[in-house]
């Protein structure tokens, strides 16, 4: 007699994902579906996809989905939550979408304490458009728009989103995780579960920043890219919980 110990979570469709080989978008999509599954959240889930590599995320989740204009997903989600307060909304954004064009939207959604869960993919680059510099590109990192390496003088400094947003009063839970190895993936999964639990308990805004890879535009193999994130990514963007007001019953009201 045998038991299935690992399978594709029910919220994912059977559509093959268009992401490049070894791209961690696929892992994060699965973790979202696993987290929602664990919370029994299958009924009223609505997802908001960004502009970027994950623009086609609506093909990979079975729940109702929106495709939002670049940077506007948190505003779209705000509208959704007003129309459907009882829905469970996840917002999926890359670093260009969230920390560049959409900075005002994410800051104000957080400041309003919008009851939504934002999954923020920080791979330090614009993937879909071919590897340009993002607000989270590391100092010295070469991209197609910082070809001799990002310099603070010329290109400004990387933005630490968790640190920035956790200074606001609105957020209930802000954590930065990674998916560079099995242990990190399990931590990331737990953070997503907690984020959705916050939303379910109407504690307010939750954001999980997930350090991710872009093997194609890093110019590395998938495994090298993960190691690069493990070493350089976590150094620039320390992992951890940046804000957690606690869930009901955890005695932290």
């Amino acid at each position: 007699m045998d038991k299935i110990v690992f399978r594709k979570p029910p919220l994912l469709t059977d559509a093959p994902m268009h992401y490049c080989p070894g791209c961690t978008h696929g892992i994060v999509h699965r973790l979202i579906a696993e987290a929602l599954d664990e919370l029994g959240e299958f009924e009223n889930v609505i997802g908001v996809a960004p502009v970027g590599c994950a623009v086609f995320a609506y093909n990979y989740f079975k729940c109702d989905m929106f495709q939002a204009a670049h940077g506007r997903a948190p505003a779209v989600a705000t509208g959704i939550k007003r129309a459907r307060p009882d829905s469970t909304v996840f917002v999926y954004q890359g670093d260009g979408d969230l920390a560049s064009i959409g900075m005002a939207e994410i800051v104000h959604a957080a400041a309003r304490g919008e009851n939504m869960t934002v999954v923020f993919i920080n791979n330090g680059i614009y993937g879909m458009t071919g590897g340009q510099m993002a607000p989270t590109t590391l100092e010295g990192q070469k991209t197609t728009t910082s070809q001799s390496g990002r310099s603070a003088k010329e290109h400004g400094n990387p933005i630490k989103v968790c640190e920035m947003l956790s200074a606001l009063t609105g957020p209930a839970y802000i954590a930065r995780v990674s998916v560079h190895d099995v242990k990190a993936v399990k931590t990331a999964r737990a953070a997503l579960v907690r984020g959705f639990a916050m939303q379910k308990a109407e504690r307010g805004f939750s954001l999980i920043e997930i350090l991710s890879t872009c093997p194609t535009n890093f110019g590395m193999t998938p495994q090298q890219a993960l190691c690069w994130v493990r070493d350089h990514g976590t150094a620039a963007y320390p992992l951890g919980v940046y804000k957690d007001i606690g869930l009901p019953g955890e005695g932290r009201e």
Partner: peptide
């Protein structure tokens, strides 16, 4: 040993892991 580490790291849900369970 059906630890599923492979499946955890797979971005495309390629691997389904089964474990032998005594009846």
């Amino acid at each position: 040993i059906s630890c599923a580490c492979c499946a955890v790291m797979c971005p495309d849900c390629v691997i389904q892991v089964h474990r032998e369970v005594k009846a």
